[in-house]
């Protein structure tokens, strides 16, 4: 019980750096939403039910008097396809957890608390409560940002001026350092980065994340199985 609480709080704290930027971008979304005529109730409904930054920006952009319901759902599907891979990568963390627990925690998985949790897991200190603490904290930061923007105008009109858009890139880069597994990652990361760049240039939306992640994983599969005993790691071939 005590562990849950401390893991939850640790997860919340670990997301503080990125939550500030999430809040600033939430306020930008709030301003756009007020121009489209969303009420605070609409906004909070969307924050609570969807809870996915990029998808919410597109939804607000598509907002009109007569909502294009199916087009909106399709756009959200494409933008959030990466969550399929993010969800799959969390499977080891959830090992042994009940279905209800999975159902509750997974709702509040965003790029940010996922990345923070993956980096923490590499140090052997991540739990699902750590992930959940980050999710709740991000939800509060994101939601309050959107409401400030909606009701009071933007916190910061142009976050790019303060390089706040680069905050996400910088945090994810810092966390990626923690996920680096040494020279066996050289090929997968080169392939992932190259594929992501090409996809970003040629495909719309967030496809590049899916394409890059899959390409990197497939590149890793091409590596011959390592013999057991490599720095005490378990044999990848299952021996």
């Amino acid at each position: 019980m005590k562990d849950r609480k401390s893991d939850f709080l640790r997860g919340a704290r670990a997301n503080v750096p990125v939550a500030a930027s999430a809040m600033a971008y939430g306020s930008v979304l709030g301003v756009l939403a007020s121009q489209k005529g969303l009420s605070w109730l609409d906004m909070m409904y969307m924050n609570s039910a969807v809870f996915a930054g990029a998808a919410q920006f597109v939804m607000v952009d598509m907002w009109s008097g007569h909502l294009p319901i199916l087009e909106m759902a399709l756009a959200v599907l494409v933008i959030n396809l990466r969550y399929l891979l993010i969800g799959a990568s969390l499977e080891p963390l959830f090992a042994g957890r009940g279905f209800l627990h999975k159902m509750c925690v997974m709702h509040l998985v965003a790029d940010e608390n996922w990345a923070v949790t993956m980096s923490e897991q590499r140090r052997g200190r991540a739990t699902t409560w750590f992930l959940f603490g980050g999710g709740v904290f991000l939800y509060l930061a994101w939601s309050s940002g959107t409401l400030v923007g909606l009701l009071g105008g933007g916190l910061i009109k142009r976050p790019e001026v303060y390089a706040l858009d680069f905050a996400f890139t910088a945090v994810f880069s810092a966390l990626a350092v923690g996920l680096w597994r040494g020279k066996k990652d050289i090929l997968p990361w080169i392939v992932a980065g190259g594929a992501a760049y090409l996809a970003h240039e040629s495909l719309p939306g967030k496809w590049y994340i899916v394409v890059g992640g899959l390409a990197g994983a497939i590149a890793a599969m091409s590596r011959p199985c390592e013999p057991a005993g490599d720095k005490g790691e378990k044999d990848a071939c299952g021996n």
Partner: peptide, 15 residues
């Protein structure tokens, strides 16, 4: 699958 988290995160930042 073991390489996926790093590959995903790196893909996220490269562009």
């Amino acid at each position: 699958m073991d390489a996926l988290p790093g590959a995903l995160l790196f893909s996220l930042v490269v562009p």
